[in-house]
Amino acid sequence: MLGKLTAQFEAASADYAQHHGMVRDPDWFVLKLQEEMGELTQAWNRATGRGRRKGRTDEDLSRDLADETADLLGHVLLFARNNRIDLASAIERKWLFRPEEG
């Protein structure tokens, strides 16, 4: 599961970077994690009344939270891939289960 999902995120990220002339060097991967965590935090603050809504409806806020969570997940997988981290093994070690394949 993680391998296929990671490959899909990698293809999308590589296409996006090429289209926008971005260089994904080793620092880029960790910096994107930080950026996306900040955006998720901002979405959370808006959704929970701790930040300005900026005219966003409840539906918008829910979608923003989901979208930023998806971005963060994608960048976690990209970071792991770029750093040759075996996430399945790490999950098994830290969370005490093995992610399902398929």
Results as ranks from 00 to 15, higher is better:
Leu87Asn: 02
Trp95Met: 13
Gln34Trp: 12
Ala47Ile: 00
Asp25Arg: 01
Asp67Cys: 09
Ala70Leu: 08
Met37Val: 07
Asp86Asn: 09
Asn45Glu: 14
Arg56Tyr: 07
Trp95Phe: 15
Val76Tyr: 07
Leu2Asn: 11
Glu10Trp: 15
Leu40Glu: 06
Ser13His: 11
Glu59Val: 12
Asp71His: 08
Arg84Ser: 11
Gly51Tyr: 05
Asp71Thr: 03
Thr69Gln: 11
Met22Ser: 06
Asp60Trp: 02
Glu35Val: 08
His20Ala: 10
Gln18Ala: 15
Trp95Ser: 09
His20Leu: 12
Pro26Arg: 00
Ala12Gly: 04
Glu36Gly: 07
Thr69Trp: 08
Leu77Cys: 02
Pro26Ser: 01
Ile91Lys: 02
Arg52Val: 14
Gly21Met: 00
Asp60Glu: 08
Glu35Cys: 04
Val23Ile: 15
His75Gln: 12
Ser62Met: 13
His75Leu: 08
Gly55Cys: 05
Arg84Pro: 03
Thr41Gly: 14
Phe29Asp: 05
Asp86Ala: 07
Phe97Leu: 03
Pro26His: 00
Leu61Met: 11
Ala7Trp: 04
Asp71Cys: 03
Gln8Asp: 09
Leu61Glu: 11
Trp44His: 13
Glu36Cys: 02
Gly21Ser: 01
Asp15Arg: 15
Leu2Pro: 00
Trp28Ser: 10
Glu35Arg: 11
Asp58Phe: 06
Trp95Gln: 10
Gly55Arg: 02
His20Met: 06
Trp44Lys: 14
Arg63Lys: 11
Asn83His: 08
Arg98Thr: 14
Ala70Arg: 11
Asp15Val: 15
Asp64Trp: 05
Phe79Tyr: 15
Leu33His: 00
Pro99Lys: 08
Gln42Thr: 11
Arg93Met: 10
Pro26Cys: 00
Asn83Thr: 04
Arg46Lys: 15
Leu96Lys: 12
Asp67Val: 13
Trp44Asn: 14
Ala66Arg: 11
Ser13Asn: 09
Arg24Ala: 13
Arg84Tyr: 14
Asp60Phe: 02
Asn82Glu: 07
